[in-house]
Design a protein around this nucleic acid. Sequence first.
DNA 1: CCGATGACCACCT
DNA 2: CAGGTGGCCATCG
Length: 108
Amino acid sequence: MLRVLSRIPPGHVATYGDVARLAGRPGAARAVGNIMRAASIPQLPYHRVIAAGGRLGGYGGRESLKAALLMAEGLTVRRGRVLHFTRHRWGGAQATRRGTRASKLMEP
DNA sequence: CCGATGACCACCT
DNA sequence: CAGGTGGCCATCG
């Protein structure tokens, strides 16, 4: 779970659902959110975790800050959403070419 | 241990 | 696109 969060590459983002799935708990997207909120390890790139569909999701209320951080990572956020989300999505870019499944590449 | 929350998600209307 | 519904789960009291 947390280990997955720490593995999100800079310049890329993952949805709560994705993280949950990669952690082996599909459907635990909600729980993932709680983990961040609880923030046992505040040094993790929480801002790289966004809601499904490229929406920002929450960030302790400061979603503007989250957007800023994402922009700093090279992404483009507009009207509360990440543009070209699928391209910056963790595993999204790789998955585009041939059946390259991202799941096996990143979660040993 | 149990119940209540909530930075969520997918599906349907 | 907006709004409602049911489900799944880790934390906290």
